[in-house]
Simulated assay, not measured.
Amino acid sequence: MGVHGVAAAGARAARVDPLLADRVVEALLLVGLPVAHGGHGPGVHLFATGGAAGDGCGDGDGVDPDRWPLTLRWLCSARLEDAAAAAGADSPWPRTRQVVADSVETALAELLPALGLAAVRETPEGPTRVGPADPAAAAAAPVSTVPPTDPAPHLPAETLAAVRRSAALAGLPLARHPRAAGVALTTCPPVPGAPDAVLTPGVPDVVDVAWHPSPRLPGAPAVSTAVREAMHHAVGSALTACGLRTSWHRPPDSPPHLHADAPGTSAASAPAAAAR
C-alpha cells in the first residue's frame, strides 16, 4: 500500500485542531504548495502531533503536543513514494525520497514563521512541527505581484522535459503560466565561461529555475524574501535529487540563480532516467 495508505490511516485516527489546520492550509496555498488531503500526495500532509505514532516516522516521541500540536510531512509523487517503500537495500529510491522530503520540510520550517505561524524542525530528518503564533504577523502586508516573465519563452525542449520529469517525481507543481504557482522556468543568458557544449548559438540549453508563489502572497519584504529563499533552495535540492542537472550562479548584483540544463550521464541522473 506504500506511504500513502499509512498516512491516510494516521490522519483518520488523529484529531487536528481545525483552526490551526485552516491557517496552515491557507499559508501553504499562499506559498503555492499543494496540500495532501487525507494523506494522499503529492503535497504537504497535516496531522496531529502524536497521532501518527507507529507509522515509522517517530512522531510524538518526546514532543510536547500542546506546544507543537500539528505535524507536517511532505509526500512525494506516488511513483517515488511507492518505489522508496518497495526498494531494496541497494536502491537509490529511499535516499532520493528522503532528500526531497527533507528539502521541502526544511523550507516549511523556515518560511511559515514569516506567515504568522510558529514552526520548527528538531532533527535533520524529522518532520516539521507547527504551533500557533501571532495571527496578525502578515495580515496587513500588501499583496505581492509575480515577477513579469515572457508569457511564451523559447525553452529548449530537452531541458524542459527533464525539469518536468524531476518536478513530477518530487511532487512539485510546475507553473503553467506566468501567474501560476509552482516551479517556474525562464530563459537565461549564456553563462560567461561555460563550456561550448552547454550552449547552442542563439538558443541557450540552460534555463533559469525559480519558485513562483501564489499572487496572493503578502508582498512585505520579510514575507516574500523568506518564501523565495526557502523555496528556491528546496526546489534546487529536490530537483537535483530527482536527477536534474543543476548549478547555482551568484551574480554580484542580484540574488542567486538556479540553472538547469539538458540531462547528463552522471550518477545523480539515475533516478530520473529510471522514471522515464
Rank of each mutant, 00 (worst) to 15 (best):
M1W: 15
A7N: 06
A9I: 15
G10V: 10
G10W: 05
V16I: 01
L19M: 15
A21C: 02
V24W: 04
V24R: 00
A27V: 10
H45F: 14
L46V: 06
T49R: 14
G50H: 01
A53R: 03
C57G: 11
D66K: 15
W68I: 10
S77W: 10
S77D: 09
L80W: 14
L80F: 06
A83D: 10
A84G: 14
A89C: 08
S91R: 12
P92N: 06
P94A: 05
T96R: 01
R97F: 13
V100Y: 03
L111Q: 10
L112G: 02
L115V: 05
P124A: 08
T128Y: 00
A138S: 06
P147Y: 09
P151R: 13
P151W: 07
P156M: 04
A162P: 03
L169V: 08
A170L: 15
A175I: 13
P178Q: 01
P178H: 04
R179D: 06
A180S: 04
A181Y: 00
T186C: 08
T187K: 03
P190A: 13
G193H: 02
L199C: 13
G202P: 09
V206D: 08
V209R: 01
P218E: 06
A222M: 01
A226E: 02
E229M: 14
A234W: 00
S237E: 08
A241F: 00
T246I: 09
D253G: 03
T265D: 13
A267R: 06
P271S: 05
A272G: 13
